[in-house]
């Protein structure tokens, strides 16, 4: 199994072409809502966890309406998880003041904010990936351009996405050939270093050739798609509904309110 299979980027394209209620929403509507989602989730104070839980609804709705396989998406999120871990892991060391207790164990502020960072990471990356999976990268790019995002930026994004495939393909081939010549011994670090260097050079060559082929067919930086979606009233309702929900969930801790409602607690 090569790295290409591991990243399964082609699968993302396949998902993007499905026809479901989530796919039929206008790409611009989904882009706006997802961006708002990410901004709102990131705006929470760093010790909040419970107030964030209602935000699970949005990615879950996209995933279930878009019939996106959860296992697939989870694997994609896990690939990026080490980065969040790296960002969050210093919190427990730096911030040791206890803020809450579970049973008899005091939980420090550091661990709470660590949990909050990881949770926010899963929410935002999950929503972004779900967006791509129920829109398709090219259509998303075209939507961003129509929303006024600078063309250079959109093209960079699309290339990044395309080249991810190119790079992973190269990496897979190189790793396989190195392994075939290593008589079953694990590859040494020095070998990996040299491989990464080669990988970079080869990927740049490859990227150049892909770009060359695009230019040869008249690519001038504008992303064009065959059937641009149109923004209809159901898209407007979708945008308005989601934004309303995000704002309320940001202003009030809906999870706590819901809990009180269930347990019949006095307000």
């Amino acid at each position: 199994m090569g790295i290409t299979d591991w990243i399964e980027i082609g699968r993302m394209d396949e998902l993007g072409r499905m026809d479901t209620p989530a796919h039929r929403l206008d790409a611009r509507a989904k882009a706006i809502v997802t961006l708002a989602f990410i901004v709102v989730v990131m705006s929470f104070p760093r010790h909040d966890v419970s107030a964030l839980t209602p935000f699970l609804l949005y990615p879950i709705a996209l995933i279930s309406l878009g019939r996106i396989p959860v296992g697939y998406l989870a694997r994609k999120i896990l690939i990026a998880a080490p980065f969040a871990l790296f960002i969050g892991i210093f919190n427990p060391l730096l911030d040791r003041t206890p803020v809450t207790t579970i049973g008899t164990v005091a939980i420090s502020g550091g661990w709470v904010s660590f949990g909050s960072i990881m949770f926010r990471f899963f929410l935002t990356v999950g929503a972004a990936l779900a967006l791509v999976a129920c829109t398709g990268m090219n259509r998303l790019g075209a939507a961003l351009e129509r929303l006024g995002v600078p063309r250079v930026f959109v093209v960079q994004l699309l290339f990044l996405y395309r080249y991810l495939f190119v790079v992973s393909d190269q990496a897979g081939k190189m790793k396989r050939s190195a392994e075939m010549r290593s008589s079953g011994r694990p590859l040494r670090l020095r070998v990996y270093g040299s491989m990464i260097g080669h990988l970079l050079l080869r990927s740049m060559d490859r990227a150049e050739r892909v770009y060359r082929a695009m230019v040869a067919r008249g690519f001038d930086g504008e992303v064009r798609v065959l059937r641009p979606s149109s923004f209809v009233w159901s898209d407007a309702i979708f945008v308005a509904g989601c934004l309303l929900f995000f704002v309320s969930a940001r202003l009030w801790n809906l999870a706590e309110a819901f809990g009180r409602l269930l347990t019949g607690g006095a307000m």
Binding site: G16, M137, R206, R209, V210, A213
Partner: peptide, 12 residues
């Protein structure tokens, strides 16, 4: 181009 993989970059 020589390598069709360079030339084919769209989803379908």
């Amino acid at each position: 181009f020589q390598d069709p993989d360079d030339q084919l970059f769209m989803p379908t």
